[in-house]
Write a protein that binds this DNA or RNA. Structure first.
Lengths: 204, 204, 204, 204
DNA sequence: AATGAATGAGCTTTCATTCAT
DNA sequence: GATGAATGAAAGCTCATTCAT
């Protein structure tokens, strides 16, 4: 028993080391320059070793993404704690945007890059995003039941809230905010304002 | 004068040829498989020739992006023709979403990919997206003046509308809709519904 | 004694398991995709375990080859049973060709691939092929004694018969029959015809 | 005109350089250790350069094989010059065997290795081996017309002669002659003897 | 203006093998 | 006896870019 458990633990520790190496490469060098070789070098193992833990690069990226989502969930649980559903929804939105803007490379991997999605088979759904999405959905469900928001369909409401937040964050990350003649500071302010306006709009 | 004009014209014609080759590669093979070599092959010139017209790949992509935006503008001008500002806003949103979902690779280049944005210098703004954004802004400006929508700040309103639409389209393109257990068909329906709900919400 | 015998038996059983795994890989995936790792996976042992039973890959292949030769010998014993030597020679040739064409990957290992031959030291002879070759030689010896064939030297005759059969089979396996403009079916027919013609030629 | 011709010539010269580099690697290091990188290093070019002249490794090997066949054809033309068809057939066989035994690695590439055959599309035939095979076929055709040999079908006869010679040479090259307890010298003698015996057998 | 030729740098992946446990 | 963990070495291949002509 103990021996098996140790083995499993060690295996997980190694996977963690790889994941952390990948995250480090992402954050310091960006996605483009993150290769299996680079990650291996970073954690001081040979490239071949990584293939003992991951079938291919996409699988590794998928796990890195999973890790990133756990980070977002932790943020949600720490910052979106209000008992009032609508108040909590506000906190969720603010946390989401804040997370995206401060962890741009991770956000990229979580919501924009295609690679990690390749491991998801046809007809299957995207498990990594599950818990965070459920966190949002649950909250919205409560909002609707209490008639706090002007949506009646949970799915549509959840998708809308998420899209608004994602739209704002991703346009910024992908540098598209440069259409507007604004300072960096102004952009962040506009994003926040837009989220708040949106929340006001949907409030009953 | 005549000679110079001809030269300029010829130069532009060649640039067009390159751009069209790139667009063709994008649409038939996708962004990942679009390399300078592939484009050159497509238009039956040597890779080196492309470098006579573009400093590097990013500059070329920037111009392809510009072309793509002209396409979107044409769509706007053709489909968002209502004289009533709010009605026109509705048409703009629908056209945008429709364009994104039917030209995914081009949308990718226009709003998601980082590469073409590298040419924009610090402090400069993003000229390619200009006209399309102005089209939206103008419309929203009118909506606000006629008090047709519940926003009062043009910038915030424009950013919000755009973000909502972009959020929906890009989450789909980037396969993130897979969190929700929906058929492909259902997804498109949900996107449309979300846009419509949003327009209802902002309507005065 | 009993203990030692059991150990030897167990060791042989394990070797058999490895060999059978290798054969399975050969036949289902072909030689190119047969790696130590694949074999180990197939028999559900670790790659390292194989090295407890075989010094290196070549040694393992040598043993797989030995097994394959036992298969050919069994075929000879089952199908080349005529008491008349020349008739038996005919049966041997037909069995050989048939075996080669229906077990191409194994034939490759037995008669073409270099790897398994690396274990044979200088000055040593090739024990794996021994029994099968003896089966042929014995038969030819009888043919010569009864003056049924137009050869007088057993070695030369055996080598000739073998070479003719091997030439035909291996040219087919190695795709060299493609010089001739023939259908797949025609090729098999030509091989059979060539063998028969050869037997007619050497018959006294 | 002159310019184009020079370009074509230079291109062929480069291809020759690559081919010769490959041949050199083959002969000094053997097939297994001949990689694109190795060849590139040998001729002091970068690996990428080779891909300007050959689509992939198989295509290069196909061309090396072509070169090797030209070498064999030259040998045929130099050594198989008798006007009497049967005599010429004898010369062909002897030349073939001699060529195989003295250029073992090239023979391997020409008649045994699978890689160069991958470029041949389904339904197509193997052009590289064409001329040499025709040289043999023509000769046999004449033999048959003059009733010098005991075969009546040209194809069967050609295939038989070739198979006998190839069987002898390839069994030697692939070290299978080690079944027989013979010195290296004895083996060569046995091969020669077998060819001669065969020729005697088929002679009318 | 156009290009043929070339490359440095990089990629993902696979393999036979070793060794401490 | 068995293995999990690890790796050095190598493979084929692609790309953006440069430069002499």
């Amino acid at each position: 028993m103990g021996i098996n458990e140790r083995k499993v633990r060690e295996r997980n520790e190694m996977r963690q080391r790889i994941i952390q190496g990948a995250i480090h490469m992402f954050m310091t060098e960006g996605y483009e320059k993150t290769s299996i070789r680079n990650i291996a070098e970073k954690i001081e193992y040979s490239p071949a070793t990584i293939y003992l833990y991951y079938k291919d690069k996409d699988e590794l990226l998928y796990d890195v993404q999973k890790e990133a989502f756990q980070g977002l969930l932790v943020e949600f649980q720490a910052r979106a704690t209000a008992t009032d559903p609508f108040e909590r929804l506000t906190q969720i939105c603010q946390t989401y945007v804040r997370f995206g803007l401060t962890n741009q490379e991770m956000y990229n991997l979580m919501f924009i890059l295609k690679a990690p999605m390749n491991v998801i088979e046809e007809q299957e759904y995207w498990k990594n995003g599950d818990d965070c999405f459920a966190f949002l959905t649950t909250c919205i469900h409560e909002c609707i039941q209490l008639k706090q928001i002007r949506y009646d369909n949970v799915m549509i409401a959840a998708l809308s809230v998420w899209s608004m937040a994602h739209g704002l964050v991703s346009l910024d990350i992908c540098c598209r905010m440069k259409v507007m003649e604004m300072e960096e500071e102004g952009v962040v302010h506009a994003i926040t304002a837009s989220v708040n306006e949106y929340l006001k709009l949907i409030k009953n």
